[in-house]
Amino acid sequence: MDAILLQVLNGLDKGGAYALIALGLTLVFGTLGVVNFAHGALFMLGAFCAVTFDKLLKLESVVVDPEKTTAWGSKLEIRTPYVEAWLGDFGRFLHDYSVPASILLAIPVMLVIGIVMERGLIRHFYKRPHADQILVTFGLAIVIQEVIKHFFGANPIPQPAPPAFAGTAYVGALFGMGQTLAYPWWRIIYMFFSLAVIGAVFAFLQFTTYGMVVRAGMHDRQTVGFLGIDIQRRFTVVFGLAAVVAGVAGVMYTPILPPDYHMGMDFLVLSFVVVVVGGMGSLGGAVAAGFLLGILQSFASMNEVKSIVPGIDHIIIYLVAVVVLLTLPRGLFGRKGVMEE
């Protein structure tokens, strides 16, 4: 029983990440009609906002001691972090909580990156074929990757979770199972965080006038334009919003997966499968498919399942995609007419 619950939890936290990235992808596709292969790079950029924030907090004053040398022959450097020297205990607290605190940096940075990306490059490709959009955004993703690698190196850079959430939570106690079922605190937090972000995006689109106009534009851009609304500007903001969603998802994922320049690409392909299974242009579909595929992938990795179908864990997501597309060609919640011209 606890093995099954463990896989459900695992699937939910994996699915949370898939759903967040797929949500942004769908948002951009639904509003601008752009297939954005650079969306994974935005997730990675968010993660590197956390790395940058941590590096800023770790900035040190360096004093070289001319008398002493290190064991490897270079001059000895005495380093003192500025933040801790200036802010004392609060500096240490900031340091411990650098990952959640870096969301404050990530939101404006990602919004600006998103808007600049849309205004500077993406808008020139609105009327071009999807193949052109894929090529240019994929190229952009590679450029972003290489820039990050140049400045941060190729190795993963660990970002520890705040000490209070570094251990495991005994989830089993909630179900009267004692201490047999434990799960990392940070992964549980990530699960709730992804649900909160998804809820916030839906609330924004559903319950605000701005969101209503965007939804109207997604259905019929031309008519909304005729009503005198600058729908293009709103779509630019939506692109920025999608970048923020991907970015904060990346920030909070850093204690789970030490970020490196390639992490966005690793998620990108899976997220596209999630979008296709959920249905192109369907926000609800993207979220549902994200969690569904996360849970299925997790169960497929159980040794009991693999002993029946060896290698199923490697192909389950693609297998589900094939089955869904054969039975429901528009995906689980696909809208009629999207990408069908």
Binding site: A3, L6, K14, S301, M302, H314
Partner: peptide, 17 residues
């Protein structure tokens, strides 16, 4: 698989093995 990234689905079966 090489470069799996998230190994959690491979680690959870270890806990009950």
């Amino acid at each position: 698989p090489l470069g799996a990234g998230d190994f959690s689905q491979y680690i959870t079966p270890v806990l009950n093995s």
